[in-house]
Design a protein around this nucleic acid. Structure first.
Length: 299
DNA sequence: TGACTTCTCCAGCTTGGTAT
DNA sequence: ATACCAAGCTGGAGAAGTCA
């Protein structure tokens, strides 16, 4: 009887815990809707907390628990994501876009955009949203023997496209990843000479027919699958981290980094294979076009 | 002329600790 | 679980200068 009571109370706790998590996610989702609707306005954490009927202190904590990012950083990410969309889909100048997404200073907008996306707003527009290369921490500057490897797979059956996998200091794919790669399809990956530290492994895949010409990247973001693994503490050992890609939810931080045209790179790998070259991982073959595109250190 | 970079200042945010 | 406090930090505004 005592055992039964214990089991029941545990079950109740788990059920109650699940309900708490659900209500936290609902509150965060409501706040994100408010953020999206008020991108051009001066929304503060106080405003969002009031809308969610929490104190701003508590709201910050539960929001971070639900999304992995503080409300301020999430809002900044949404603004920059919207700016990316406006840059490739309109002919508005940078100053107008800056105002539309809620910044009052072009200087701030330009520097934050460059830092997060990896290129200036005008360069981003010129490249139609696709980076020629993604700068990473140069291998020769890292005294490390650490290796990170694993398998990236989709949570559900369906058409799968190329998978971008990056190692970032935060739960949001922005700035310069420590290491990154693009797989032609879900499968095994591996990173050598991983810098010591605490990292998040973030993966993104665009579903659908990846052999069609690149779409507007903002449009592509609507059918994105994502996966997050971490925090991973890397020292000198080998770490395994398997990823399961699931359809992106509103609670997932937006992808800010300008990605390479993954489909073009994946096609290059397919061509390599038909020519008889060994099917190589992007980071393990110095002759791979992906290697050249991804591992080239920034100037 | 428009876009970008760099810098300083400071309001607002984050975070760790604590109380209820 | 929720709320509050306080110290330290972050990021936004705006000015000045550079570049194409």
């Amino acid at each position: 009887m005592a055992l039964k009571l214990t089991i029941n109370s545990s079950a109740t706790r788990i059920r109650r815990g699940g309900m708490v998590e659900e209500s936290i996610e609902r509150a965060a989702a409501r706040a994100i809707v408010a953020m999206r609707e008020g991108l051009g306005e001066q929304l503060t954490v106080d405003d969002m907390a009031r809308a969610a009927m929490f104190s701003k202190f508590h709201f910050s904590r539960i929001f971070q628990r639900a999304t992995g990012l503080s409300p301020g950083r999430f809002l900044s990410a949404l603004r920059l994501q919207y700016a990316k969309h406006l840059l490739v889909s309109t002919s508005l100048n940078v100053a107008d876009i800056c105002l539309r997404v809620g910044y009052n200073s072009v200087g701030t907008f330009s520097s934050r955009f460059s830092k997060s996306v990896g290129m200036s707003p005008t360069t981003y527009r010129r490249c139609s949203g696709f980076a020629e290369q993604i700068p990473t921490v140069p291998a020769h500057r890292v005294a490390s023997t650490a290796r990170l490897y694993g398998n990236a797979r989709l949570s559900q059956l369906g058409a799968s496209g190329p998978v971008f996998i990056g190692l970032f200091p935060d739960r949001i794919p922005e700035g310069r990843p420590a290491r990154c790669t693009i797989l032609p399809a879900p499968g095994p990956y591996s990173f050598d000479t991983v810098p010591p530290g605490t990292w998040y492994l973030l993966a993104q895949s665009v579903s659908g027919d990846w052999q069609t010409p690149p779409l507007d990247p903002a449009d592509a973001e609507g059918r994105v699958s994502v996966a997050t693994y971490g925090p991973i503490t890397v020292r000198r050992d080998t770490v395994r981290a398997d990823l399961t890609l699931k359809p992106a939810r509103d609670l997932d931080p937006p992808v800010l980094l300008a990605l390479t045209d993954a489909r073009e790179l994946a096609l290059a790998t397919a061509a390599e294979r038909t020519e008889g070259a060994a099917p190589s991982m992007l980071v393990s073959s110095a002759r791979s076009p992906h290697e050249r595109a991804l591992q080239r250190p920034a100037a």
